[in-house]
Design a protein around this nucleic acid. Structure first.
Lengths: 335, 335
DNA sequence: CTGAAAGCGCTTACAG
DNA sequence: CTGAAAGCGCTTACAG
């Protein structure tokens, strides 16, 4: 069943049916009522493919995140959807599952679907040859905004937090509370995000050479969930006394670390301070409650959408300086 | 740029281009190579709308979940995607945000997109007049499988856990460990899932009238996240001594409850046992680690896909009896 | 193995 | 305000 069936039944042309269904102002009230009645009676739903094909555009914007298992990304999706919907677009969520090949697949899908735009949020590096080529290719036809990492000469807009500064600032503040070496748990080279945060930590520590010497900056290769934080701390059971702080690149690692400390009888924060990144919703409800570096997700979403709209209209927009994070102290850093 | 441009450049017909791009076997090796070279050189990507319109079908299956903020649903999405992809379909995720109007919108979207099928996973009731009508309407053209709740006379297949039995069984087991009244934290009438679990709890308690009398079965109206579990336990600070167990309809509530108990100086599990539902990944890493009623998500996904394929092919399939849950004891119930 | 041509179901300039 | 007709970009029976 299509417009022609509705048109025939209603005794009008397909043009009129289309106008009614698309809310054109020109249609007479009576005609509109009649057509709508027929549509309802016959249970007709327009074919989105035919409409998009004819219109030559799609009103959907893709949101691709590194992993929907990470609460921070879910929070971001929520905010982005809200902001995007306000602009009259629909959204479609892609889960990259931290995989380059999945990302590449999705760039293809975005091209085939002629998406109006795409938002990419990942801490995983996107500067590998294949990934970079796929993104460039996509960005040629689908306006793109990337959250989190800046690439030289990229044909897209970047919105990011200043994680180097945030990490440096946080470490300085924690060293003020307890001037002891730091155990940093981050990801290996595949993570852009970990790299930035590590640099900030190093920068702060380098002001205190003896503390830097005693610190350990771990580059994990095993993902960043609870179990990894747990395992890494357990693995250092005998060597924990020399550290004053465990600084984790996300909240999940911090949670796992706390569990290990608890099993080892290391008190948080008396013997060891612990802090994560992202400030996800559950942190205040943990025991001990977890400190974290918090960022304004709504602010990110707002900037992303502004930048995307500008690109969709063929223009550019200055998204301003990198966003600042702030440290949220809870029990795990002494409140 | 379209097939015609590729055809012209390659000196073949559009039919041949289409065949090459769709992997038809009939095309000569040389022709295939040549066409692919032109496609790559011109950076051509087929238009998905045109293809779907012409084919008259869409190979995408929708996955609609009550909320992507709930880890259990994220786990389910993962498993479903894997299973669906194996069958050659793509997936598209819908977040219902626990909203009836969003669900109704998505049923419309599914119809317009001529989805090959739809999976709906929600604990929120779907038997309200409007929602039920929207689902019936959708199920008329889009094969549907619902996870979790059974509706009489529905035109779709249901895959569910036996939560009544699981709850009853769990309570009996916990009463064996500590024969004291139970504080049950569940949602109000809008939640089908809470209702089932409450019934199981009541069924177990009714074998011990004095324990039933001392128990409290709370029907919350405020969602089911960490903060709610926390608040409800705090609100009963003076009355906790009479309970032996806090039984929560999800793990998030249980986590919040534990935090409140910790602040109140109530020891878990010595003074109070706590258990949740879903067995999400973080539970072993909490302090205390949280017990939970676990279900085989992979098993659900496998049945759902089997049922969906049968419906897509116009048939039916017996998905078998409801799935069983098992209780996973961790520190919060005494290990 | 390959091509010419029809047609999927819409929307929109154009004409009245 | 409304209609006749073209055309969006594919795929596929049909013919050779």
């Amino acid at each position: 069943m299509g417009v022609v069936d509705i048109a025939r039944e209603a005794g009008v042309s397909t043009a009129t049916v289309s106008r009614v269904l698309n809310g054109a102002e020109s249609v007479t009230g009576a005609t509109r009522e009649h057509v709508l009645e027929v549509v309802a009676r016959l249970g007709y739903t327009p074919n989105a493919f035919a409409a998009s094909l004819r219109k030559g555009r799609n009103d959907a914007i893709g949101i691709a995140v590194a992993s929907i298992s990470q609460p921070w990304h879910v929070k971001l999706i929520r905010e982005l959807r809200r902001a995007i919907r306000e602009q009259g677009f629909t959204t479609i969520v892609y889960d990259l599952e931290h995989s380059e090949s999945v990302l590449i697949e999705h760039t293809e899908s975005a091209r085939r679907l002629r998406l109006a735009g795409m938002v990419l949020a990942t801490g995983d590096r996107i500067d590998g040859d294949e990934v970079r080529a796929a993104l460039d290719r996509m960005a040629g036809t689908v306006p793109l905004v990337v959250i989190g990492q800046e690439l030289p000469g990229a044909g897209w807009t970047t919105v990011a937090f200043d994680d180097v500064a945030a990490s440096e600032q946080a470490i300085l503040e924690l060293l003020g509370r307890r001037p002891k070496p730091v155990l940093f748990l981050g990801e290996a080279a595949s993570s852009y995000l970990s790299e930035e945060r590590r640099i900030g930590v190093e920068r702060a520590l380098s002001q205190f050479p003896d503390l830097l010497a005693g610190s350990e900056l771990v580059a994990l290769d095993a993902g960043m969930d609870f179990s990894v934080g747990y395992r890494e701390v357990q693995a250092r059971a005998g060597a924990l006394a020399r550290f004053g702080t465990i600084f984790c690149v996300n909240d999940e690692l911090a949670l796992g670390a706390c569990r290990a400390l608890s099993e080892l009888g290391v008190r948080v924060p008396e013997d060891m301070m612990v802090i994560g990144y992202g400030d996800v919703d559950m942190l205040p409800y943990l025991t001990p409650s977890l400190s974290s570096l918090s960022g304004d997700v709504g602010g990110v979403a707002e900037r992303v959408v502004r930048a995307l709209l500008a690109r969709i209209e063929g223009g550019h927009v200055d998204v301003g300086p990198k966003l600042q994070r702030k440290i949220v102290h809870r029990e795990s850093t002494g409140g």
